[in-house]
Design a protein around this nucleic acid. Structure first.
Lengths: 341, 341
DNA sequence: TACTCCAGTGAAAGCGCTGTCAGTTCTTGA
DNA sequence: TCAAGAACTGACAGCGCTTTCACTGGAGTA
């Protein structure tokens, strides 16, 4: 079938041990012998069988990346960053998504189990008992993206959302004279929403802003639902001179459009800001003031940590925090820093 | 270390052969024995070692997907479709991108070589001598996405762009009274651009429309460059009552914005249509009339073909053509079919 | 000269699995 | 009662590789 180490050995008149040695650059092989072997290898176009190698070495050089959903720019950028870095480091990337409403155990197992991958980077949007249980079973190097799972040993890469939210809201309060800020987030169980909401409460409290009972909404990060909510609420919000802080750009876009549909304009009647700085942030008119989240860096960082851990399993657990950046455009009403489209 | 087939055999008081048999559901194993083995398996949490298995079977159950670039919604949707289908079929998906200006040989080899993957789905935006040479070396099942490489045996999944372009342009000509249509495409070597341009020439010729020498532009599929071109050209186009057919939505958006910046409005002064029906198509104002390309279906179809070929290598080569769909919104000036945002 | 040492090499033992082949019972029919 | 299957099961030979261990011959040492 394919050319094996034995074929190379035969052609170079050495034993397979020697071929293996030149392959692994371990013990010193005689200069001359090595050259003979190397030319045999290239003549035959030989490359070692991954399975045989994996069987011996217990290493596949494959890293797994599990995402909650492959939809949207956010995930696609994470994949992109991860893929690039993995390749730089000589690893292959295996990707898997966890279907939204599945608890993910099975799929996680599909990638993480049976020793195929050397390490696993997992992004979980919602930590519940079942996901925790699944993660606990993983015995290979694990990096958790954008979250932290208690009781499970792992490295993690998080986004410093707090700082981003703080910068964003301070900008609204200090530079745009916001006196009331409405929060439109994702599901209450969503990890990002939780963090962003928490920071929102801190900042508003600290600044002495009133947050009425109805000022916090939980949607699903989609344009459509935000638009629908907007249709019902924009007039009221505008009347109360509220600013809208949407927990992602899609929802911010939905609300801007709802305002427009109601004959209101952003930012004059209803300033709106988003989060993530995805493609839509520059597609809305006015363009969104938002917080840039280093999506692809996140993927890359996860792979970095994973490799380090794979190659040095005893390194203590690391938690890497990635900085965000406030991007001021026009939707907040005070364009200070205008970035290029 | 990990639990092996031997451990299961010991615990169930059988030989490893029997365990292997129950695993592979081949020869009939005694009912009672089978149960004993099965409970031993679940007690021990055993799952067969992929490497050992791959070594014997010459099958990894891993499929490779190579894309020209992981950027953008188009690719991310392809990945999504492929991933979902692969999982449904019990395969794992390994992803790799080919860095834009690299010839791709190395990366393609990285995934396709050394027998790691059972099959390879490749999307190449530009077929040149080097990529062809690389593809010729691939001896495993191969599916080419959105293209066809002569002299290489492979299945392929293509998008029926011609029909899409025809429907789109006919709509402009017949329903919107277009008498002049400007074409803004990607690079001249880009495979999609070539096809779309060809169809464009056919339709305009057939309808007796004049295509001036300067009416065909080659950009790079990006918003920015289209915007720049638009800044220079929109007035002239508007004066000549031209319609703009941009070969993707991003460029269409760039041109609409350029028109707006020049004080012109779409569709009144300058109708613009796009292609792909990505997220931006509904973010522009007016929203884009465009052609929906079944991106995730493309990924799924590729995986389908790949599996079929992996499981039945002698099946004759197949070329699957995916239908596109005209989506009429407002940017063309004649909203007939208005789809939901 | 006899000894140790060492660089360089080969033989062979697995890694965990599948698949072939050869038993070993247990039926069954004559 | 016995041959001939049928129904199961186990022993074992690899798959292609790494790695240990043993061996060789020549250099260094006493």
């Amino acid at each position: 079938m394919s050319v094996s180490i034995q074929d190379v050995a035969d052609r170079a008149n050495v034993s397979i041990s020697t071929v293996s040695r030149v392959l692994n650059r371990r013990n010193i092989v005689n200069e001359e012998t090595r050259k003979r072997v190397e030319s045999a290898i290239s003549d035959l176009g030989y490359s070692p069988n991954v399975f045989a190698r994996g069987l011996m070495l217990r290493k596949s050089h494959i890293l797994g990346l599990v995402l909650p959903d492959l939809h949207g720019e956010f995930y696609s950028e994470v994949i992109r960053g991860a893929n690039l870095r993995a390749r730089e480091l000589g690893y292959n990337l295996m990707i898997s998504s966890v279907v939204a409403k599945d608890d993910g155990s099975e799929l996680m197992a599909a990638v993480g189990d049976h020793g195929l991958v050397d390490g696993l980077a997992v992004m979980i949007s919602e930590v519940n008992a079942r996901t925790r249980a699944t993660l606990e079973k993983i015995k290979i190097p694990l990096v958790v993206l954008d979250g932290d799972v208690e009781g499970v040993k792992h490295d993690s890469v998080v986004i410093d959302q707090r700082t981003g939210v703080v910068a964003l809201l301070r900008h609204l309060i200090e530079d745009c004279q916001a006196r009331r800020i409405v929060f439109v987030g994702g599901l209450e169980t969503n990890i990002d929403t939780i963090e962003r909401l928490e920071a929102y409460r801190e900042v508003t409290a600290e600044a002495g802003l009133e947050v009425a009972a109805g000022d916090v909404y939980h949607l699903d990060y989609e344009y459509d639902t935000a638009f629908e909510l907007g249709v019902k609420k924009v007039r009221e919000w505008a009347r109360r001179r509220a600013f809208v802080f949407a927990a992602n750009d899609e929802m911010a876009a939905g609300i801007i459009d709802a305002a427009l549909a109601a004959g209101l304009s952003t930012p004059d009647d209803l300033p709106v800001v988003g989060f993530d700085d995805t493609r839509v942030a520059t597609m809305t008119r006015p363009r969104l003031t938002t917080v840039r989240v280093p999506m692809s860096s996140m993927g890359a960082a996860a792979i970095d940590l994973l490799c380090q851990r794979v190659e040095n399993p005893k390194r203590p657990a690391v938690k890497l925090s990635l900085e965000t950046e406030l991007v001021v455009r026009e939707s907040c009403g005070a364009a200070a820093v205008v970035t290029k489209n």
